[in-house]
Design a protein around this nucleic acid. Sequence first.
DNA 1: CTGAAAGCGCTTACAG
DNA 2: CTGAAAGCGCTTACAG
Lengths: 351, 351
Amino acid sequence: MKKVTAHDVARLAEVSQSAVSRTFTPGASVAPDTRERIEKAARKLGYRPNAIARSLITRRSRIIGLVMSYLENQFYPVVIERLCQALQQDGYHVLLFISQTEDADEVLTDILQYQVDGIVMASTSLSSALASDCQNAGIPVVLFNRVAQMGAMGAYATSSVTSQNRDGGRMVGELLLRTGHRRIAWLAGAENASTSRDREAGLRDALEAAGMPLHARAVGHYDFAEARRAVLAMFKDPANRPDALFSANDHMAIAALETLRTELGLEVPRDVSVVGFDNVPQAAWPSFHLTTVQQNIDEMVDATRNLLFDQMGGQIMARSVDVPCVLVERGTVGVRDGQAGRKPTKSRKTP
Amino acid sequence: MKKVTAHDVARLAEVSQSAVSRTFTPGASVAPDTRERIEKAARKLGYRPNAIARSLITRRSRIIGLVMSYLENQFYPVVIERLCQALQQDGYHVLLFISQTEDADEVLTDILQYQVDGIVMASTSLSSALASDCQNAGIPVVLFNRVAQMGAMGAYATSSVTSQNRDGGRMVGELLLRTGHRRIAWLAGAENASTSRDREAGLRDALEAAGMPLHARAVGHYDFAEARRAVLAMFKDPANRPDALFSANDHMAIAALETLRTELGLEVPRDVSVVGFDNVPQAAWPSFHLTTVQQNIDEMVDATRNLLFDQMGGQIMARSVDVPCVLVERGTVGVRDGQAGRKPTKSRKTP
DNA sequence: CTGAAAGCGCTTACAG
DNA sequence: CTGAAAGCGCTTACAG
């Protein structure tokens, strides 16, 4: 019932407490037979080193704080899973915080008290006040799937890893143009989210290059119900309907698909094409078979780890990594008119 | 850059370190003006009490270990979200572990080192060896959505909270019988999962009471791809096809829906009815509009907290709580024959 | 109300 | 290789 400590083990094995500590410290020097005696005693007593005490003295908790908000978007559970596992393999652990508000400040003061070795913030941004608090405290922060505001010097104030969202947006724009669409609409996520802004910028790049205006635009705030409302508004006038809708993420694209079919009686892709972003598991379900841009989660997780470890190792400059993303053509983009567009072949079949 | 401690604050405020500590300990006695001076100094230096050091001395980390495995089933992200938030409000934090294997033992020794105040294990079970380790260490464990094996004395060895799964299963069985189904099939989850076993038992209760045999049975292991395979096998023989399929959870029910429609060309509910369990967000999507049994997550989370806190407070006996669940009738159950069944009215419309 | 002191369970130079 | 000792940053009786 009461906790067994290194002292108890030392007593049983008839050695000093230091020896016990060394036995459980990789790379410390202990004579083989001493170690064996200690391990036996430890096993007998059910001894497990106290990680809290270790953290206090080593000043490294081996805990990473992870701040999350929108778990309903299936992209994030996948991120949690991969990130947790990667970190576990490195001997780190994840303290999870859910921040319902976009502003993660209050949650952060909490995290800081736990002496985490690093923080990753997914789909949230932090005030520059907190960012500099972390910097002062020497705690590396990396933004996941969101990019920091430019700092005063034009340098990035906080590290971040994202996809090449602008590229992804451009790829979708080009696909839509190539397949003959002329009334292309954009369904934005949150206006202040860099993902949404960058993907939109990419789309606009493509449109501009072709001298084509954006046909319509609405904001869905990365939310299912709001996306539905936005779609209803955009498609209100039957005479002036978009022939393609590019949604800032799959979560909203699926909401759009549902709304288009069920409430507006439109057929996809016959009446309107739909493209998303993320490639969440549901995008591959036959009911949706959604054409989308895949974010490479594994590479993003890898980059996050590297950034974190570099900065824990003293690398002080913040860096921004962006990972290539790939177009996954499934069934929600059609070919319009007698346009010289090619059919959506080359589909990367994802079962 | 270097960490500021209570000593630094004490020096600046010209008081003892003890006074600083008291200022940050709710309920400790400090003179108002002393407290004010200390708070000012703390603010100036950006002092934040070190939770690690506090944990070491108080022997309470205010950390709860949460073990998870299947995040692809959307039920669990919702659980994480609610549980985290509830615990955060109580001043606790969540250390998240992903255990890919059903056997969470290795992950547990890790958790134990972090001196967590309690552990909740979702959809995983732990070996009785580890369970007694936790008991010896005085760390309460509660199983979430899974029930422990009976102990030697017929008492439950580990606390748990579940839905009234057997009731839920029976409700579905009764609904299916009432609507005239005569060839009812069961799609099991994992054979060793109590959820699957209990829901099946409930279904069988209903069938037996009506003198009706179970028409078919297959195992989907709570997995999308495996559920698809199981459905294909069950519906192989067109002459002997089930007229209703009850799936152990929504995740597999959706897989079944997709397979039935896309690969077998069957229409739901005209050709076959489908019922799930959980009421995940996707079940309400128009493409599925799945009739299912809703697990009351909020009540389950509440029960989990209570169990945890009671046991941290010294309540030694393990308890099992089961929460009522409710049938949510949507569109995937039809009425068969000239049977005296009533139409699936009384739909709890969930938008 | 306040301070000096002991102690939580470890790690890590420092001697031997 | 091994042990005695200092110290990580707090909390909490114990005196005053």
